[in-house]
Design a binder for these strands. Structure first.
Lengths: 227, 227
DNA sequence: TTTTAATTTTAGATTCATCTAAAAATTTGT
DNA sequence: ACAAATTTTTAGATGAATCTAAAATTAAAA
């Protein structure tokens, strides 16, 4: 594959379009959404998507936004694969904390060498998930489905395993750290406040905590003995 | 330090100027020498060194070449430190061969994060030399002197330890591999041909080999029981 | 269904890094 | 020491990535 032929900037646009598609699950991605995500001007985005359209990375209809082609999606998944593998490296090997790795991985994801990624993947033990619980696409772009749901969708008292976050802000991750809530930790739902949809939970069979509805929506879990 | 404020390209020029200074040990580095090393045009180099001069990275006198300032030298050493640490990572951790790592390290050296380099250095066990035997500058730019000499400067039959190369071409490194000549291997000089200055040596007390004067000049050794 | 608001595109500039061709300065050779 | 050769710089262009301001198009609202 050797993602050459695409500049850093082009790669960033491709990834941004992919992520917006993922989040909004709309058919097309708007110029403004891309501009917002990349902290750039709509005019700049228009120029870039024209170039990406010429390179058959996106389909583009004036005034109606863009959509990644199969080729574009493959490139996006390849960048995401690299990003998440590097995050695993930074956390598991270099002892970075999970809230510190994003910016560095954002740089490392642009390093261009297929052989490097093969060897890095092996070195890390071919991980399927990154330190935040996000699935790592394999070399063909396939992702193992995490099979997780937001804690906020749990409606009865039961045990769950914390397996990912739906918010990657450093401040949120640090908050979870302060509760000693790590990926793999058991969360037992003790009660749900039907008024504000907040949760009272027990973490690791130890301390009790309260989660607002918002926080509960950011905590991804797998129900245990789920019925 | 956080080498920000310098583009990839600027960093490449700074490193190139440093290396040319190192090789030629002349006071100033010429426009053409930089152009040759970076496979670019002299006119392009003139533009860039003007910018570097404005940023106080080099001293520049029209028509008389450039010289790195203390600031420029510090930046160059920082880039070289990163390059060599990454090479250690690639060879020692990812099992790349020593002839395969240059281009990848050339990309990785531009990753910008002081914390990353501190942690990488620790992870690698604070190595003092890279896989080719080149000294790794410490965080202050200090390098441990390798104390090595080219095999071609050895004038009598004696044992030496192979500790580095003065030529980093993949083909040369592969040639040494084919002789099972690795860093640390003992080379015993059996005879020196006074006509063409070629060497007959025994490697690791096993096979005998012949080295032309040219090859001998590329093999760096530390004499054993040196007198 | 028009008018208004929001979004998107075009037009014209700027900066970085690069090029070629031509001019200027330095170095070399006789 | 002067002409020839080499090196270096200037001048003018180009492409990538960005900006602002204005024009065009689409979407929303009265």
């Amino acid at each position: 594959m050797e993602n050459s032929g695409f500049t850093h900037t082009e790669q960033n646009y491709i990834k941004a379009i992919f992520k917006i598609q993922e989040i909004t699950s709309k058919k097309t991605v708007s110029t403004n959404d891309i501009a917002d995500r990349l902290f750039t001007q709509p005019a700049t985005v228009t120029d870039m998507i024209k170039r990406l359209a010429e390179k058959k990375i996106v389909t583009y209809k004036k005034y109606y936004g863009v959509h990644l082609t199969a080729k574009g999606e493959k490139i996006a998944l390849d960048i995401i694969r690299k990003h998440r593998l590097w995050e695993v490296f930074l956390v598991n090997k270099l002892n970075f904390k999970w809230d510190e790795v994003h910016d560095i991985a954002e740089q490392l994801e642009h390093i261009n060498s297929d052989e490097l990624i093969v060897k890095l993947d092996d070195f890390l033990g071919n991980p399927k998930f990154d330190p935040h619980g996000d699935a790592i696409p394999d070399k063909h772009g396939k992702m193992s489905s995490a099979d997780s749901v937001p804690l906020s969708s749990i409606t009865k008292k039961q045990s769950c395993v914390f397996c990912g976050v739906a918010n990657h802000e450093a401040r949120f991750l640090q908050y979870l750290d302060s509760l000693k809530l790590n990926i793999g930790t058991t969360i037992h739902v003790e009660s749900i406040n039907s008024f504000d949809s907040s949760y009272k939970v027990k973490i690791n069979k130890k301390q009790s905590e309260f989660f607002s509805a918002q926080i509960a929506s950011y905590i991804l879990v797998q129900p245990v003995n789920g019925k």
